[in-house]
Nucleic acid binder design. Sequence first.
DNA 1: TGCTGTATTTACGTTAACGTCAACGTAAGT
DNA 2: ACTTACGTTGACGTTAACGTAAATACAGCA
Lengths: 137, 137
Amino acid sequence: MTKTKSNTSYAIGDLADEFGVTTRTLRFYEEKGFLRPERRGRVRYFSQSDRVRLKLLLRGKRLGLSLDDSAEIVDLYETPEGSRRQLNVLLDKLAERRMQLQQQARDLKATLSELERVEQQCKQALDALPNKARKAR
Amino acid sequence: MTKTKSNTSYAIGDLADEFGVTTRTLRFYEEKGFLRPERRGRVRYFSQSDRVRLKLLLRGKRLGLSLDDSAEIVDLYETPEGSRRQLNVLLDKLAERRMQLQQQARDLKATLSELERVEQQCKQALDALPNKARKAR
DNA sequence: TGCTGTATTTACGTTAACGTCAACGTAAGT
DNA sequence: ACTTACGTTGACGTTAACGTAAATACAGCA
């Protein structure tokens, strides 16, 4: 609960609580270079930018990406600069990621529709049972 | 390439090739109980049903699920039976999975649209560069 | 008969993403 | 001065999902 200054920076515990991760996780992310909190003495202070990066990292995780992959994507967001060559490399990466995510979207759709199909079967099986009380459907 | 009998069962190497995994993976999946190939002597023969399960398992993996979670979902597909209690438990699991996948769909959508936004920026940056040859856009 | 190719088991190795101590510092409240 | 709450740095432990290597079996063929 300890607000550090105004609201422009977060203590490690607060940020951890907000996103439902442990402080160990945040330290680990810093150690790996995914986050770069400011240091006053030895103590970490996380900026808004850190907060956003964390949010995006966790979103990547929910998609099943590795932290490295997740971080690569987040880095792509922050790279609007570069030479022609660099821009083309970046475009390649973006296209590759996009195709991967589109495949995921297809997998997701298929899985969801199968889940829903089974759910329907399930409900019908329930309706067809000899039973006591009725629930509204 | 060795077809085993007619086409109703697959040798481990063939199945591995077809799905782009190693034989080690298939043995591991059997060891974990995710697949149950028939045995003639010590040799494994994978059925159509094994093939389907494998396909679904790998789809789950692409969604970032653990093998255990993936297998649980596959098992749900094959469980249309049960008592009232069991059916309700199953419905709960199905609903939970569905909500999780829907969250993932949202994450996916957000990530995709951000990727596409950056792609546009990138292309504009390329167009704005002082350069030699022109590519069609 | 010996080679080639595919199969088997056993078992130790590896990487990612943290968990879990231990030992310590520091600032705030009583 | 003592406790409580939160922070710090090591450093070893853990789990999942295979990789990899060694030793062995078996089937077809030149």
